[in-house]
Design a protein around this nucleic acid. Structure first.
Lengths: 234, 234
DNA sequence: GAGGTAATTTTGGTCGTACCAAAATGCAAA
DNA sequence: TTTGCATTTTGGTACGACCAAAATTACCTC
């Protein structure tokens, strides 16, 4: 190799192009290594290194002893691919708080936008999510899922795929902490009421009120996180 | 390997831990492959595959024929590692608009927050950035850099490392389009004036005015993008 | 001692062969 | 058609070999 391009890099680029263009179908296995060797005219070493790089990038999902599965990139897979690094960052001092505050920042904007721009369909989806949340107050596992779903509707209001992906990211990054938190019917009830306050403000088309209701809700949740985990979060 | 763990995965995990903990210093080269072979008691095949995966994850930066350089993860390296996928997503129909609108969303929130919470130091930094921007009106390359810097100050107001990293992400993701856009002294003057309007609103501690000024500015910029690239952006 | 050049060593990149265990496929029997 | 077994394919790993490029060492001159 006289020039600056490694054979493995060329294979990575070519396979990425095949994935993005659809020539390699999403959710399908990659061709076998020996077939790729023939296709690219390179050694198996090069193919395996290229596959490792693609796996690191999230373009394929690899599992021991199975063929790698194609993951056509979308904003969700982008954020999935960051999960490993993000989990390290969350373990640093202040890591969880920074992430949580960035989520609050985003959701403040989302409720303001919902108050200003939500369509009838958005309102209907929020209302349904609220009903589901209410019906799950006595069942904390279900309440958690419907809680996530209520917030998820907010991320769909801008009609931009980046936001639902971001919701998915937040849900997975912050899930380890959430899973450890005490839950109770009393707390579920209060959270449902906070969701309702947000919804009512959106119905009123009042961005400031919606933002304030969201702040109250997420600040209360944050205080609950701090009560659970203590000062080592700071 | 009878169980589900591949040797290369174990090496990846171990090296990640060494990178995150600082045992492998940021910006330093990884140990040589033959040394890693000794350290982990595995073949060179496994080491090279592990390094490829780490490179795909952004934990090391690899260049042909040179030792990989450690990149201790921060939110910047997370977003750097997504750059390749994001560029594909930007090439899809509507990709650029979605990204641009998500940036507008974030910056709306940032100017609101600045109007509410900016410290004296934030204000001083904004003012300096504004002066730099003004002094660069006749020099479009410098104007571009000071324009980016002015927005960058906004991303530092929340005192959360996620936002400066996000600014870095937006700057790099949207740079290819920006680089192709016509520039003129007249346009630079108008952009400077828009920055000043944002700054003045922040000084007034008026979030709505700041948001409105930002919207005017970024909508005008978006219209310029559309004029330059035509309808295939949609 | 400093600087420059040449020689040597180290290192990343690639190739091929080999072996093994696990997954997939093919075939025969019920 | 389903099940079980044999065979083939496939991913995982190891090893040795070779080469070109980068790094280090050795040597010489001023």
């Amino acid at each position: 190799m006289g020039d600056e391009t490694r054979a493995a890099d060329a294979v990575v680029s070519a396979l990425e192009h095949q994935i993005v263009s659809g020539a390699l179908k999403d959710n399908s296995p990659l061709p076998a290594e020996r077939m790729l060797m023939d296709q690219f005219g390179t050694s198996r070493t090069v193919i395996r290194e290229a596959i490792s790089m693609l796996a690191g990038r999230g373009m394929v999902e690899s599992r021991p002893r199975f063929r790698p599965i194609v993951r056509k990139p979308d904003y969700g897979t982008v954020l999935d691919a960051t999960g490993n690094i993000v989990s390290h960052l969350l373990n640093e001092a202040g890591g969880i708080e920074n992430m949580y505050r960035s989520r609050m920042f985003v959701e403040r904007g989302l409720v303001r936008q919902a108050a200003q721009l939500a369509t009838k369909e958005d309102i209907a989806a929020l209302q349904q999510a609220l009903l589901d949340n209410q019906s799950a107050i006595a069942d904390s596992d279900r309440f958690y899922n419907t809680d996530v779903a209520f917030h998820g509707v907010l991320y769909r209001v801008p009609k931009n795929p980046i936001f639902p992906a971001l919701h998915r990211g937040y849900s997975s990054w912050l899930a380890p902490q959430w899973k450890q938190m005490k839950r109770s019917v009393d707390r579920n009830q209060r959270n449902f009421e906070a969701h309702k306050a947000i919804f009512d403000a959106i119905l009123l088309r009042d961005p400031d009120l919606a933002e304030s209701a969201l702040d109250d809700h997420l600040n209360a949740a944050w205080n609950h996180v701090r009560d659970t985990f203590g000062p080592n979060l700071d």
